[in-house]
Design a protein around this nucleic acid. Structure first.
Lengths: 349, 349
DNA sequence: TAAATTTGTGTAATCGATTGTTCTTTGAGT
DNA sequence: ACTCAAAGAACAATCGATTACACAAATTTA
């Protein structure tokens, strides 16, 4: 095992000081071209790799960004990460990816861990449990840039990028209405989480806009952030519940693809025709939605783009002089409806 | 923004030296209990957070492990990461997760980046493209522990953990035979990749063991590591190809779930009955396999356990005195057959 | 009681790169 | 020829924690 070569090794070889070598490698204007060339040559010859830890210590900058995802089991987050990486890699940043597993306690732990290893910034989506944001405030208090994506703490002053979930809910329901549905149910997520609130709001507004009467019984609120299998089961149960109603709905807009998948399985089992008896639209366009029969219409969230934007927000903050007043920016991405058989009643439109 | 408190801040406050504080916090036996208590108190009061970068520089240890995954789009890798984290978190390690996107060039880049930020070890699965392993050897040459998982370079001297893919192939095909299938086709992966070789070997051996004649035309080799949608299409094409054969197979063992999913979609379309006309077994037990109709029988790979084992191998290497001779260890995990409708002909067994 | 340990801390070097401050040399300008 | 500025590089401090070594005081041992 060879020991690493350091600045001083190169310096000794050339009879100059480490500072000269450092500046030469940094292309400092005060270093002569001849010296620069010589240094570069030896550096290459010795296969010099700068010690980033030393550099980080001196510069107070680690070139590492912490990314917190509630869980990486979902394609959603994998895609976000990819989006972030795409942008920051050229700037020389590495990512540390952490999972909060939807628990506030772990979220705190992870934030502490990231601050401890001195990340240059944190990009996070908040856990479903979280209602108190002090641990996030700690990030900003430490002077570490914070960017939130998708699930953001309302009360937090931070750059953020979210999908327009209101619009997502609206276009989903509008689509169902245009397919002739008049009694539209909604599988809603927990209303203390902004995105689910917005999707519900979109649902309600679309109904109102088209003068569709609203029936309270058709809205079922539940925890849509959980183990995939559980949500699947939940979807089945909720569907059963709807079928038991005196006035049975003719469509379901589910704020989660998985609950909708469960609904489809259940309806298939009961030989209830989709979309003719009940039409369905899900949310987030999971891969499985294209696999199930009939294919599940869903809202696509442009996750990679979301990652890209989050990364850009981070870079912006880094490049903002600390003197300037910080005003949080919010980026709103537009979701898209991906239409499949589960909602397509007018086959020939 | 408050500045962080350092060891010296505490030292000054107590009129001792930083070294004493350092030792006190480290619970050094030579430090008196009274001093320790005092230090702890002030440290807490000042909300002291050790500067890990400084510590890393001095100790030559970053407490960061680099994890390389070919792509994080698959649940498979998400699960592995989780498995690794579970183990190493208590030891104070953080993970940096990188994606090679199946490209050797990116794999090299990532390895360089990880070495540059001085990770304490690298846990990796090799990209499909990779046939030359020099960049991995570089890791060991630098004295950095390396652990491979799932896709390992045969010629690499490194700890590794893999699933017994031979057994996976064997039990999959044995199951099909037991269901009465006699003409079993195989969607094989690229044979330069060990896991696909092994699955194929399992297929062949099971056939031989049960005296099932082997027909070369029933084996189709293709790239099963690709964009999910592409593999889905590929699965359809390969199925078409099999249907065109003079002697049509009555079962398919696919080395990829996604190709099998494509096959199911295709067969459903053609109204060919599954499993009666053609039975199917996939590989890796993806979530979508439980969603499709009929459910796809598949081989489960215990991915979290694989992550656990990889992490343990890493810790072992760390704790091995460098003097001792290094002998690479290979852990072989046992896969499990998850039976669903796609292969279940004897419904009443 | 003298010698030998043990105990509790302080001193100072170190990890490797960075950077503000000299210092010397060279060259231009008058 | 002389002043002054710029160029090129060295010096030395610094980032914060760690640790080999030194040293005095307290305690034990003989």
């Amino acid at each position: 095992m060879k020991k690493k070569t350091t600045l001083s090794d190169i310096a000794k070889k050339l009879n100059v000081t480490p500072s000269t070598v450092s500046r030469a490698l940094d292309d400092h204007p005060r270093i002569s071209d001849s010296t620069k060339k010589a240094v570069l040559k030896i550096a290459h010859q010795f296969n010099y790799q700068p010690n980033n830890i030393a550099s980080a210590l001196r510069k107070g900058k680690s070139n590492i960004i912490g990314v917190i995802v509630p869980t990486s089991d979902r394609q959603f987050f994998a895609s976000i990460i990819r989006g972030i990486e795409e942008i920051v890699r050229n700037e020389g940043y590495s990512l540390i990816i952490c999972q909060s597993d939807e628990q506030t306690s772990k979220e705190k732990e992870k934030i502490d861990a990231l601050l401890q290893i001195q990340v240059d910034g944190i990009i996070a989506s908040v856990a479903k449990e979280t209602t108190d944001y002090d641990h996030f405030k700690k990030i900003r208090n430490r002077g570490v840039p914070l960017v939130l994506y998708d699930r953001i703490g309302e009360s937090l002053e931070a750059n953020a990028v979210v999908i327009n979930d209101y619009m997502g809910g609206y276009i989903a329901v509008e689509h169902l209405i245009q397919q002739g549905c008049k009694k539209i149910a909604h599988f809603a997520g927990q209303q203390h989480i902004g995105i689910y609130q917005d999707r519900m709001r979109g649902y309600l507004e679309a109904m109102k806009a088209y003068n569709i009467p609203f029936n309270e019984e058709w809205v079922i609120e539940s925890d849509l952030i959980d183990d995939t299998q559980k949500i699947l089961e939940l979807g089945k149960e909720m569907t059963q519940q709807l079928l038991n109603l005196p006035e049975r709905p003719d469509a379901i807009f589910s704020a989660s693809d998985f609950a909708a998948l469960g609904a489809i399985q259940f309806l298939n089992e009961k030989k209830i025709s989709i979309p003719d008896e009940i039409a369905l639209v899900g949310y987030s366009n999971d891969f499985a939605s294209s696999i199930i029969e009939p294919g599940l219409t869903s809202i696509d969230q442009y996750t990679k783009q979301m990652g890209n934007m989050a990364a850009k927000h981070f870079l912006n903050q880094i490049n903002t002089k600390s003197g300037e007043q910080f005003t949080p920016e919010l980026t709103l991405l537009t979701p898209e409806l991906v239409i499949r058989a589960s909602s397509l009643r007018n086959k020939h439109v």
